[in-house]
Amino acid sequence: MNKLLSAVVLIYITLLFPSLANAQAEQQIKAEIQKRLGPNVKVKSVSAAPVTGLYEVLVGNEIFYTDVSGKYLIQGEIIELASGKNITEQRQTDLNRIKWTDLNQANAIKTVRGNGSRQLAVFSDPNCGYCKRLEKSLQQLDNVTVYTYLIPILGADSLQKSKQILCSADPYKAYIDWMINGTAPSGKTDCNTPLDKNTAFAKTYGITGTPTLFFTDGSRFPGAVQITDIEKKFSTLK
């Protein structure tokens, strides 16, 4: 009798409060997935996917899918055939987006070319080869303000070079001299730098590789982005 009553109450709650029932189902699936993946993998969230019967599972910054039982983990992309829209890719873009105002510009090396009207943030490691390639491309941009946040994630030498660049009389010149001209930075390393803050920011927002670019709408572009793609992105922000 108690089981029957409980079932009736559950049905009643589901009909009257579907959002509550969905939230409970998502929490149960999350618990089941977390149990199966173990303590070394953090399941951030579980939410209903745009396909009936599927749930989105967010592990770190990676998107997976599962069924209502939580027994299966599906890796792949959802494509809406009618429109050709990559729903997974769009969702990943939204998850990777930040608030431009969250960036503390005082922690960056700032350079302005032309009228500086277009803004771009770059997270860079001085020993990152792709960062050097990107920096050469960025020299082609005009009417732009570039904020470069150093995050020494490639080793002790990256930390040393970052400190020498930031402690120099002209950090931007020291940075360009190294990244483009190959002239290694030198000098003191004992000044106050924002490296700890930049590294903490990178960890909070899942910036695990360099270079990583951000635009004023918060969108994220990882890797040595082509100059044509940067210009194309800028054109959408007007």
Rank of each mutant, 00 (worst) to 15 (best):
K3Y: 14
S6Q: 15
A7Y: 13
V8R: 13
T14G: 11
P18I: 04
S19K: 13
E26Q: 15
I29K: 06
K30S: 11
E32Y: 03
K35Q: 12
V43G: 02
K44E: 15
S45V: 09
L58N: 04
G60F: 08
G60V: 11
I63Q: 07
Y65N: 06
G70M: 03
K71C: 06
G76C: 09
E77M: 04
L81D: 02
S83K: 06
I87C: 02
I87S: 06
I87V: 15
R91G: 04
D94Q: 14
K99Q: 12
K99M: 07
T101W: 01
Q105H: 14
I109H: 02
V112Y: 04
V112E: 08
S117W: 12
D125Y: 02
N127I: 07
C128M: 04
G129P: 03
Y130F: 11
K132H: 14
Q140P: 03
T145R: 04
V146T: 07
L150F: 02
P152S: 05
Q160S: 09
I165L: 09
L166G: 01
L166A: 03
S168M: 08
A169Y: 09
Y172D: 08
I176S: 12
D177V: 11
D177G: 15
A184G: 01
P185Q: 10
P185I: 10
N198G: 01
A200T: 12
P211E: 01
L213C: 02
T216R: 05
S219F: 02
G223T: 05
Q226C: 06
E231S: 07
K233I: 04
T236R: 05
L237E: 05
